[in-house]
Amino acid sequence: MLIAVVLLTLLALVFGVVLGFAAEKFKVEGNPIVDQIEALLPQTQCGQCGYPGCRPYAEAIANGEKINRCPPGGSATMEKLADLMGVEPEPLTATAETQVRKVAFIREEECIGCTKCIQACPVDAIVGAGKLMHTVLASACTGCDLCVEPCPVDCIEMLPVKQDLRTWDWQLNAIPVKTL
């Protein structure tokens, strides 16, 4: 009886020490799953998921938020998230229409220079000054849509990115065959 008690106590002690040591030694900084999720998100910072940016949404997913809230990422991102989180893929909340990469375009002759879009842009992709025409840096634009709403004169539109010779995807069937 005594032996058993002593033994169990000793065992508990030993394991306690081991666990404590392990907790110190192999301490995990931050939450690695959040980083992994964030790496999968498209970093548009568009907020369409309802969170202010991609990082907050990644944190929310890690805490059990649904994985289908990211329209810019499309179903590909959703599937990767499902894979990572070990949950069933679900259809996107938004329609998959946003699959084509789009960038904002300011119709410059209509722009009044109100700077509202500049303030709305989460990635500082719009340049311009008050009462002067603004323009979008197409290379930095994430196509998040956030600048469209604030524009008082509706001069911002989302244009699909055109293919050029360098980015052509070799879809031979897509070439229009002209009948001469």
Binding site: L41, G53, T167, W170
Partner: peptide, 22 residues
């Protein structure tokens, strides 16, 4: 496939860039 890989790579770069800017 090569075109798609190139696209994915560019998108990744773009996303990193966007994150930095954000």
């Amino acid at each position: 496939a090569k075109a798609a890989i190139r696209k994915t790579r560019e998108e990744k770069l773009h996303a990193e860039h966007a994150k930095m800017r954000f």
